[in-house]
Every structure is written in C-alpha cells, then in structure tokens.
Nucleic acid binder design. Structure first.
Length: 376
RNA sequence: GGUUGGGUUCCCGAGUGGCCAAAGGGGGCAGACUGUAAAUCUGUUGCGAUAGCUUCGAAGGUCCGAAUCCUUCCCCAACCA
C-alpha cells in the first residue's frame, strides 16, 4: 500500500507499506543481482549504510543456485539474511543485455545460459514462478526492454507483446499467491512501461497498464543509450499517465544528477549498479563530484573521500590509503568504495525526503547539483 | 683461469641487416561504466608541435643502411678447473 505524504510539483514523498516493512520514498534500491552486493558488502553492512531495499535478479538466481534451492532454504530473505524488502527484477533486462544469446517469441524468451550455454526458456509465467519461489517482496513483470535506437515498428510490436505478457504475469502471480506452499502469499507485482523514445507509444502503454491496478509501476527501457534530455522528456510525458497513488519506479537509473532530475519528474523508486560498479573501479561519489581514487594526485591525500560524509569509511580511512589498496589489488579497496558509494546514494535519498518534507526540494536540488559541479 | 649462454626502452622479455622507436606481458598514467555475463573494458606509455632527434652494456669498425655482422673491452649466469 502506497501512501502519498507530500508533493512538490510532480515530486512525490511517500511511504510504501510491504509485508517486510515500510519503504520511505523516494528510495534508492541497492543492487545485489546474485543475492549479494558485489564488492564483498554483506547484508550486515547494508544495515549500516541506510539501505532500505535490496534488489536481486530472477534470471541470475534461477541459473545459480536455482530458485527451487532458495525456496527449499526458506526464500531469499532467509537465504541472505535480510528481513527488509527485496525487489526481484524479472529477467526482462537480461533479454536485452544478453541479446546475442536469446530468441524472443510470443510465449516468452528462449535463452542460452551465459554460464554453460544450455537452452532455457523464461516466459511471463516462468518469471512469476521463479520470483514466487524466491519469495521477494516485490516482483517485476516480465518485459522486453527494447533498445533506445530501435525503429518504431519494432518498438510498437515489442510493447504490445510486453502488455500481453503483463496480463499473463498478473494472472500467474494471483494464482501463485493463492497456493498453499507459497512462501510470500502477499508478493507484490509492478508493471513496466516501455516504448523507447516514442512519446505516444509510451503514453498509450502507460494508460493501458494503469488499468490493471498493480502494486506499482515502473518506467523501463531508459538509460540504455538515449540522451539525458530524451530520458527526462520521456519522464515528463509518461509519468503523468501512471497512477499517482502508486509507486513509480525508474529502472536502472542512475547517476545522482539523474536521480534528482527524476524525483522532480515524479519518480520515487530507483536502482542502479553504478555505485557498486564504480566503487569497484575506484570511482567514488562526493558532494563535490566524482573522484577516481586511482589518480596519482591522491597518493599523498590523507583526507577522507568526502569530508562531509558520515559513512563508516569516511570516518576512518584516507584517500591515500584506499588508493594504495587499489594499487595493491587488495579487495578491501573495493569493499570500502562500494560501501561509501551506497551510503552516499542512500543518504542523498534521505536528504531528498527531508527536503520534500520541509518543502524545499527545489533549493535542495539546486544546491546539490551546484556542489557536484564545484570541482569540474 | 677456461667453456658456454647472456646484457634490449621503468621491469620482464621478443627481435639476428632495411617493413624497428623496437612484438607481448607487467608496471605507470588517464578514460569509460546507468533494471551487473563487468574485481571489467579502452586508450596511452623515449624526446619533440612537426620536420626531426636520441635509444638496444661500452668503444671502435664493416655496410647505402646495424639492436641485429666484425674487433676489443666491461659486466652477469651456469658449468669446468
């Protein structure tokens, strides 16, 4: 159940009530595709990093260790020892990112496993079954994320198929939630809007899926090659046609700048691999912009990553030390940077919520963006 | 003392007459990364803006042309005494 607490223009401040607790929105979900945040960050760490929701992946967990294994072990929450909300992505993005290994048909998608090459099939029903076995808090609909540059006819056909798949997802999820041996009988389902950069297709699709009364709605297929301006434009055009009394989730986005711009356009759920991946690659986010700690200029820098940050890493370690750890290929380097970055993103969301509560989002956003550009 | 094999750009190492400022690693420097097949990938790495200049242990020499051939010397390694 989503409770809209406050609005500022299109920006929404809300609370999303789930069987695993309340999510304060806007929220950034921390991506742990394989039931782990890459970079040796544990769920115990996540509790210290202000993480509200962890995200995992249907396709990847289906392959390894197998959703049935996780079900036998009591579901994903018990398996990775995390009692707060978990959102599972449906595998739809893998249809896109593993495109050389798949064939899309009406019934679903034929894949070759990226691990051993064996043939697999995932359709809407299979995706719901896998996510039900994982027993995540929120399941995502099985969609096709069409490339940003795909031609109109392709996108039109793809979106129509994604709509038909959504109906099948909903039906299957209802069926699964009613079964006796289902671990999470209140598993929620979010639909996904597609349509690449075609306003009218996006809008038509948004209207269509809004009729379904799902638990939340996502905007997918953005940040996949189009410009920022195009992405913001799509949000401006599309979000108003998605239910205001439900969470609106912008999938896979983004940079701190993207998040601020998107909150302003009505988004309240985000997820992105950037803080984890960039952290592993020595890129850290600060209130004065992004740093690459591998750069020679940090060799003798004994200040923290961000001297205004209260994360466990900034309170203790210096840039010079972390740079050394990267140079020495110590895995602690990645762990520290991923932890800092997640804390940075989660803290920024906290600040956004506070700013919305106090009706000063606009000035907060401007100051934040000015800060990011300070050292450029 | 003798024999053999070696000394190549920051390091390791390929190169045995022109296509060599010199393969390939490593290291260094920098960049990318947006529902994670990513602890990954890319660029660059003698000086100089270009012409060009300097470089393959050292010094001489042969040749139109030498990291590559010859002479002497200096070092290193293994073995023999």
């Amino acid at each position: 159940m989503y409770k809209l607490l406050k609005t500022s223009g299109r920006a929404k401040r809300g609370e999303f009530h789930t069987p695993h607790g309340v999510i304060q929105t806007p929220v950034f979900m921390n991506v742990g595709t394989l039931a782990a945040i890459k970079g040796a960050v544990s769920t115990e760490d996540l509790e210290k990093l202000k993480c509200q929701v962890e995200l995992s992946n249907t396709y990847h967990l289906h392959l390894r260790p197998g959703d049935k294994v996780i079900k036998q072990l009591g579901g994903l929450h018990k398996f990775m020892v995390w009692d707060k909300p978990i959102l599972t992505d449906s595998g739809g993005f893998q249809v896109f990112s593993l495109s050389s290994l798949r064939k899309i048909k009406e019934e679903g998608v034929y894949f070759n496993s990226h691990i051993d090459g064996r043939k697999l099939f995932i359709g809407p029903e299979e995706s719901m079954q896998i996510q039900s076995n994982l027993a995540s808090t929120i399941a995502m609909a099985f969609d096709e994320c069409s490339p940003a540059l795909a031609d109109r006819t392709y996108v039109q056909n793809s979106v129509e198929r994604t709509t038909r798949w959504l109906f099948r997802c909903k039906e299957e999820m209802n069926r699964l939630n009613a079964l006796d041996d289902t671990i999470n009988k209140k598993q929620m389902l979010f639909g996904i809007n597609q349509g690449a950069i075609y306003d009218d297709i996006r809008i038509e699709h948004a209207k269509r899926i809004s009729e379904l009364d799902l638990d939340g709605y996502a905007v997918g297929g953005l940040a996949v090659g189009e410009s920022h301006a195009e992405m913001y434009h799509i949000l401006e055009e599309t979000v108003p046609y998605l239910p205001q009394n439900k969470p609106t989730y912008l999938m896979g986005v983004g940079t701190p700048e993207n998040i601020l711009e998107s909150v302003e356009r009505g988004i309240d759920f985000f997820d992105c691999v950037l803080p984890a991946r960039n952290g592993r690659h020595a890129h850290v986010y600060t209130n004065k912009g992004k740093l690459n700690l591998m750069n020679a200029k940090y060799e003798l820098d004994d200040t923290p990553i961000d001297d205004t940050c209260n994360c466990p890493v900034c309170k203790r370690y210096s840039r010079a030390y972390i740079r050394h750890l990267f140079k020495a290929k110590e895995m602690l380097a990645m762990r520290l940077c991923v932890m800092h970055n997640l804390y940075f993103f989660n803290t920024m969301m906290e600040e956004i919520r506070l700013a919305l509560d106090e009706e000063r989002f606009e000035s907060y956003k401007k100051a934040k963006l000015d800060g990011f550009n300070a050292e450029k």
